[in-house]
């Protein structure tokens, strides 16, 4: 009998405590997962991370010559930089547009990202999927005449990313690149207008402000002679206003169609170049 009384008293106490304060419940337990990656790009590879509506990202991307030049070229820095200046804007939370200019070949590129799926906290949607399109125009003066059509290059990529836990995110991105013109400099050279690739990207978050990321972009199927698979390892630092990315990368470019078809250094040889990106987001709304 004593037991019954104690049980009733415990019940009573429990009820009065639970009535004292409401249970705290998350408003949107099935909401979208935030910050799968820190920015829209790792070194050169695009990510499923998009800008929010009204956000403008200005980005400066640099890299130098390869480090094998040693002290004579100050590990590539003396060989001059390849620089891409780019702006991207969030038209909506799911559609971003962008424009960039790369100093090599004076390539001007236009891009669009469209998010098809957004990973949710409950895992009802386990991945984020973003369709990426980019087309570039090689605008530099050539020794040989090129029509506007012949100057165009394209990229289509389907980026599939997942944040596995607070510390680790991973992405694969099958992609296709196409160049209207490929220039043969050696008669034995194998050239293809269309090249396929499968990008891999990952992020290990050290803390809220720092992470280590990587990207690897092997060519799938036929490749242009003497090209290698691009890879990069990146240290990312979010300062509140800026995201700085410092990296070693094998590719010379920051547009994936060029990384697939123009990378001539093998990261694992090892041979790579130093580079860095500076991102700054402005809220325009």
């Amino acid at each position: 009998m004593k037991k019954t009384v104690s049980t009733l008293l415990i019940m009573f106490l429990t009820i009065s405590i639970s009535e004292a304060q409401m249970e705290r419940k998350r408003a949107n337990p099935d909401g979208p997962v935030d910050e799968i990656f820190l920015t829209k790009n790792i070194a050169g590879l695009g990510t499923v991370q998009l800008l929010g509506k009204g956000d403008l990202n200005s980005m400066i991307q640099h890299n130098f010559g390869d480090v094998r030049g040693g002290i004579d070229t100050f590990f590539g820095v003396d060989e001059g930089a390849n620089v891409r200046i780019a702006f991207a804007y969030g038209l909506t939370d799911d559609i971003n547009i962008g424009i960039g200019r790369t100093s090599r070949e004076d390539n001007i590129d236009f891009g669009i990202d469209y998010r098809l799926l957004h990973q949710t906290k409950s895992d009802k949607i386990p991945v984020s999927v973003v369709l990426k399109g980019n087309f570039g125009i090689r605008t530099q003066k050539e020794a040989f005449p090129l029509t506007f059509q012949e100057r165009l290059n394209y990229l289509g990529s389907l980026m599939i990313g997942r944040k596995f836990n607070d510390s680790f995110s991973f992405q694969i991105s099958p992609m296709i690149s196409h160049f209207n013109t490929v220039v043969q400099t050696d008669p034995n050279e194998e050239l293809y207008n269309t090249v396929y690739g499968l990008g891999f990207a990952g992020r290990f978050k050290i803390n809220a402000r720092k992470s280590i990321s990587f990207e690897y972009l092997p060519v799938i199927g036929k490749r242009i002679s003497d090209t290698k698979n691009h890879a990069a390892i990146v240290y990312e630092l979010e300062t509140g206003g800026h995201v700085f990315q410092m990296f070693f990368m094998s590719g010379r470019w920051f547009t994936e169609q060029h990384l697939l078809t123009r990378t001539e250094t093998n990261f694992f040889e090892p041979n790579f170049r130093f580079g860095f990106n500076v991102n700054r987001v402005f809220g325009l709304l």
């Binding site: 004292a20 304060q21 409401m22 705290r24 419940k25 998350r26 408003a27 949107n28 909401g31 935030d34 910050e35 800008l51 929010g52 509506k53 009204g54 956000d55 969030g90 939370d93 607070d166 809220a208 509140g240 987001v281 402005f282 809220g283 325009l284 709304l285």
Partner: peptide
């Protein structure tokens, strides 16, 4: 007795929302 889930605060700007969540550490203290 009142409470809000801080991740529902909307400042009308994605970048600012992200900064706010980082500042308030909403993953740890929602």
């Amino acid at each position: 007795d009142f409470y809000i889930d801080l991740e529902t605060l909307d400042t009308g700007n994605g970048k600012r929302d992200k900064d706010m969540k980082l500042t308030l550490e909403t993953e740890k203290y929602p």
